[in-house]
Design a protein around this nucleic acid. Structure first.
Lengths: 319, 319
DNA sequence: ACAAAACGATTGGTTTGATCGATGACCCCG
DNA sequence: CGGGGTCATCGATCAAACCAATCGTTTTGT
């Protein structure tokens, strides 16, 4: 068997693929250009494979095999650092950098509560945040650019482990002086006759609200779609229709200053109409035990928020 | 971030875990004991983790973290050699060693045909064979001890890619002078009244035959179970009952010298009663393209065998 | 069209660190 | 109590990874 490639060589290869430039790649690896050049050449010779188009081209151009090797190199380097990460995580659980992805229907409403709680519970944790739609977060998780996701379950992702955190019930949001306001609780059937406002496509909350109302998902031409929960609330306030809001968003102040009025949703006893919040990480992540121990703290933050608003299910912020 | 562990150090670690002995592990790595010892110590220092119980013990004893690290080290080394394998596979497709696992209801009947065909098509391929039940083959595939499986689909295995090779229809096998022999084709319902002989538990053919007859799988106390298709045929010949045989096994001579008689199974037009043969390999295996190009050769061998027996669906070997 | 700049490959000399052989410390067994 | 066995330590050695400087070629600027 041919000798295994050196991690150094793989780092050079990946840096070159990322930056497309010997000099900059060398700088990124903290070596001189000559070293990186020699490293790439040595790798090609050891593997007996042509990685770069060695024609009279100025910029390095990768062969198909070269690109394949870059992918393998990334995976190998990740596996290598997983060894070190395992040791680091065992030595100092929940310290150091953690790249967390959050969906937009959770982030703005939970983070103001969550961050102080996390800082108190794990003072040495360095949290990097990224807010995006579930699909894009999942991509970044797989690609190793994120370590952990906070999103709505179920999220069936391959090679990903998930953990339930908390339930986030839906409440109905209606404009002032709406004809349904004389009922203390609204059955879902009552909403069927109203114009249901939704977030734009890609937000998982859109699909969850639709399925809660028993409506089909992809029925394109319904209504004008909002880009955020704040926008959505403004549309409700403007009398364009009604919507479902997660209690967590209400607790986070999404209604602040608007005349929108809330009503609990009437459900069969013992059943809850809402969605499940959870964590997700790469299966086989060295830090999985850490992530699991993170769950209670997040769950408490959610529970505290939802409980607080649960006591006042009437109008939102004191408009 | 702590520096990445050296592949060398990881090799030492894995060898030590495998052999449980510094001296022998060092010999396996082709270094002296002092080198390996120093390597392990350096790894522990770099990772700031205790891998071995450093008490006054004679044999090296791994800490829980140490065992975890061993697993990670194995994965990292595999990822590293996947880089080299990718290059090697691109350079010389279908050459070098290939560890193939085959289930016992295929192997003995196909290999005599398949091996010459493979040797002719890929002369530089060095085929290592292992015959076992699907479950155990799958374990070895995941563990990297096998590269490729030839088995009956569907085989829902995680992180495994499969490719359909060929269909292998079932035929009914009955003893001489059986009352059903006056029918040229047997409907499945006719078999329902007979005592159906099966392979013992663990053989996928057992479950496939049961499901073909519409019978439940785990109904423990049916009948005496055979340990191989040859045994099963002997039991049929002895008048203990009837069974279903894959045509491939018949073509491979499983009936040789026995008075067992075959009858095709009556099926709705355009439908086939049988099982699907296929290949399976680890998803993300560097050699996946090679394996895919192996499929036609195997498919031809199966087709040639089945076609040959298809012309003479009567009695088996000239007993 | 020509000059200047940018880029990657090559060369020669330096230094780091992995490895070896030998030795030391310790335990178990007879 | 002595011998065999096992793992850790020590000093010397040597390969290879690295850097600075240079060369040949292509691209860019005017």
């Amino acid at each position: 068997m041919t000798p295994l490639p050196t991690p150094q060589q793989l780092r050079y290869l990946v840096a070159l693929a990322d930056l497309g430039h010997f000099g900059r790649a060398a700088a990124a690896c903290a070596v001189t250009q000559s070293t990186l050049s020699a490293g790439i050449i040595a790798l090609e010779r050891q593997l007996d494979a042509s990685i770069l188009e060695r024609g009279p081209a100025k910029r390095p151009v990768f062969t198909p095999l070269g690109l394949e090797l870059v992918g393998r190199a990334r995976a190998a380097l990740a596996a290598l650092s997983a060894v070190a990460e395992t040791a680091a995580a065992a030595r100092d659980p929940l310290t150091g950098p953690l790249r967390l992805g959050i969906i937009p229907t959770i982030g703005p409403f939970l983070l103001p509560r969550l961050m102080p709680a996390l800082r108190k519970a794990f003072p040495r944790l360095r949290l990097w945040l990224r807010e995006d739609l579930t699909d894009r977060l999942a991509e970044d998780l797989q690609g190793g650019r994120l370590d952990l996701l906070l999103l709505a379950l179920p999220a069936a992702l391959p090679d990903v482990e998930t953990l339930r955190i908390a339930e986030d019930p839906f409440v109905a949001a209606l404009p002032q002086e709406h004809r349904l306001l004389d009922q203390a609780q609204l059955p879902l059937s009552a909403l069927g006759g109203e114009r249901l406002l939704l977030l734009e496509d890609g937000h998982c909350l859109r699909d969850q609200a639709l399925s809660a109302c028993g409506l089909p998902g992809a029925g394109g031409g319904e209504t004008f779609a909002a880009t955020s929960l704040h926008t959505l609330v403004q549309m409700v306030a403007g009398g364009l229709g009604v919507t479902l809001l997660p209690r967590l968003a209400v607790a986070g102040g999404v209604l602040a200053g608007t005349p929108v009025v809330l009503r609990p949703i009437e459900t069969p006893p013992g059943q809850v109409m809402g969605r499940t919040l959870g964590l997700a990480w790469r299966a086989r992540s060295p830090r999985a035990p850490e992530f699991r121990s993170l769950a209670p703290v997040i769950g408490e933050a959610v529970a505290a928020a939802v409980a607080r608003i649960g006591a006042t299910p009437g109008a939102g912020g004191g408009g």
